[in-house]
Design a protein around this nucleic acid. Structure first.
Lengths: 147, 147
DNA sequence: GTTACTGCAAAGTCTTTGCATGCGG
DNA sequence: CCGCATGCAAAGACTTTGCAGTAAC
């Protein structure tokens, strides 16, 4: 092998457009939505179309270079981290945090046995209140409590 | 308390429409989509509108009488089982199975500590191949293998 | 020359919303 | 009467697709 970001198959692999999309996802610490990726990518390559962003994301996803995360019915977000990991989602502000529990991976076998499914992957999501929102709420409560 | 399915608040609680929607969700062993619920509910009450189905589902969800499940960017499905439980989703046919691992609940505390989120709920989903699809694939492979 | 990606616009899927109507308290 | 839910249609958010043009192999 050669570059580490090479894919085979009939296609043209990493076209300039796909590289821009990949770069945007990789250079962001956040988990961007397609719309955000589109905006950022257009700053680099103004001719880029929405369709190409979606096509590129689908391609990159299938090539294992990015990961798609979906919650609720909102927009998908895209994650540069493709290794298995868990997520915490703030029910107040929507903040999304990556973390990893070794125990989750262990649960996959248990879950497979219980469900009789042939396991492929396992996803754990904690819904809760992030530290920032938690602090903000305590401040509010304290103020209210003083009335 | 009285009937067990009573909610307070300004509103009119369980209107006939909401009861039909609830009944459809409760009487199905499957995890129906809004469209399926709409179709089934209309058979009982033909005047029901799509908007009312969605409004009712939102209401029932907030009242804790049904649970919404979302995967990917497809349609939400609705679950009569509101207690915490895990899901297995077939990547071939989309079949959705409920099961419950006590270990998942235990993971919530670990996840909360790691993420520093105030925990509210935890969701575990196993992606894999359901028994039916698994069997179908083995049949196909065996045939192919014999060529 | 064939294959496949791009870019545009249009269509598609799922969900929510504005508004007039009408029932229930 | 007033408030809220209903029902209709229209709009909204997000994603996919059809098609012509073009670049890669």
């Amino acid at each position: 092998m050669s570059s580490g970001t090479e894919i085979q198959g009939g296609g043209r692999a990493l076209t300039p457009q796909r590289e821009v999309v990949l770069r945007v996802v990789r250079e962001s610490a956040e988990h961007l939505t397609a719309a955000e990726i589109y905006a950022a990518a257009r700053r680099i390559r103004p001719s880029l179309s929405y369709a190409t962003v979606y096509n590129s994301l689908r391609y990159l996803k299938e090539a294992g270079l990015v990961r798609e995360i979906t919650f609720g019915n909102g927009a998908s977000r895209y994650d540069r981290e493709t290794a298995r990991h868990d997520h915490a989602l703030c029910t107040r502000c929507g903040a999304l945090l990556d973390f990893d529990l070794a125990e989750t991976a262990a649960l996959m076998r248990l879950a497979a046995r219980r469900s009789r499914f042939k396991p492929e992957s396992i996803h754990l999501t904690l819904m809760g209140v992030c530290p920032a929102c938690s602090a903000a709420e305590q401040r509010r409560t304290r103020r209210k409590g003083a009335r």
